[in-house]
Design a binder for these strands. Structure first.
Lengths: 224, 224
DNA sequence: CGCCGTCTGCGAACCAGTTCACACAACGGA
DNA sequence: TCCGTTGTGTGAACTGGTTCGCAGACGGCG
């Protein structure tokens, strides 16, 4: 994906005219990032908005004891880092590169005036924020109300939807990372998946989970 | 608080000129609501934005088993119900009247065009959404990473801050409601508070909690 | 090929919170 | 005032998840 593609295709900036996109692109930097690299950490000033051209990003927070929780994942075509950009307060979370790739960086000083002068863009930004808010609210609900098997099945479905698409329903993720996404221990993820493997719902491999039958997982999510 | 006060004083609509406020007020309805009344439920169409003139509102979701979780509270001067209003999808949660009072209702059809024609208003709305997003993210983090005493102490501090102001640090809330806010059982709230009462940190009464010393609570929040 | 680091699987002890059951206190009417 | 309702305190059994410890397997790399 090239920068203009990202700007043109995304809901957020796709409404700009070609001229406006070119104007924005003049202020934009492309950064090549390596796996494991830290983009920003909680508390850092929110100096700009990121777009993913290629690779994968995880947004995390960590507890006092060093336990890390994954809040969100971003892949090609997605933007992240908008909260601190918009409200001028510090970053709420850490952003780490999970898969090497290339990022677009829109500096705050260039982007904000752009936003203020284009009401249609502000409306898109509002839609993006509403989407995030719905997603985050659901995370909280699930953490407080749903038990682990339900949340695990849900997460697997989401991941299969995202990356699996047609890849034979195989999700490329380690059980440790899955555990960090749910905020539970690696062992409990292993045990629940073990039960599902024995029941023939999934096949387990090193760093990957193959969903053999989606329906029972959905039933677990629905049934509680 | 009267309708014009609400519009004039709030961050969201305070930037409007007096004429604009009057224009908006012509489309606004004032509803008197009784304690226990339901304003909307999850899935309902998002037909408008609410502002609290007096009284108190809680926004909740419930699990399949009927366990209720309180996501947010709103009092005089605050707006709620903006997500479904803005993105046109269904309500994400239920809104119940906790304390009788009067509400302002801005119908979607009137408010949205208003928003689209006023970039400054859109920017305020973006700020409001960022605020909600920060808050909700913190709820999820706490639910996933922090243990109950920490979350309880945190919640007590927030409530004391909000309503207590100068009221001798007394929070008017039942332990059952506190439990619903944290997503835990009433009993565990009672037990933790009991420990703190025995340690002289708080005094407990029916439907109220008096914080005798704020510092130790803050220490619990900070220390993990 | 052979080694090493990472990932997975499990057993066992432990622990925090849940659930159930009940006593009692406080408050608000009739 | 008496009664019903709602809120609180607490014990006891239970349960789901954590923690610790370790064995084995896979996969990449020299």
């Amino acid at each position: 994906m090239n920068p203009d593609d990202l700007l043109a295709r995304h809901d957020l900036l796709g409404i700009l005219s070609p001229e406006e996109r070119q104007a924005l692109l003049r202020h934009v930097a492309v950064r090549t990032v390596a796996a494991g690299q830290t983009l920003f950490r909680r508390g850092d000033p929110g100096d700009g908005l990121y777009g993913v051209l290629s690779g994968g990003i995880v947004v995390t927070v960590e507890s006092a004891e060093g336990k890390e929780l994954i809040l969100n994942r971003f892949g090609p075509g997605e933007f992240f880092g908008e909260i601190a950009l918009l409200d001028g307060k510090g970053r709420t979370a850490n952003a780490l590169v999970r898969e090497a790739g290339r990022l677009l960086f829109l500096p705050r000083g260039e982007f904000l005036p752009f936003l203020e002068r284009r009401p249609a863009l502000a409306v898109r930004m509002i839609a993006l924020l509403c989407d995030r808010l719905r997603r985050t609210t659901e995370l909280f609900e699930d953490a407080a109300l749903r038990d682990v098997p339900v949340r695990l099945a849900k997460q697997l479905s989401v991941l299969a939807e995202r990356q699996g698409a047609g890849a034979g329903e195989t999700v490329a993720i380690s059980q440790a990372e899955l555990a960090q996404t749910l905020g539970v221990s690696r062992e409990i993820v292993s045990r629940h998946l073990g039960v599902w493997r024995d029941a023939g719902l999934v096949e387990l491999g090193r760093g990957r989970i193959r969903i053999r039958d989606r329906a029972p997982l959905h039933r677990i999510v629905a049934g509680g």
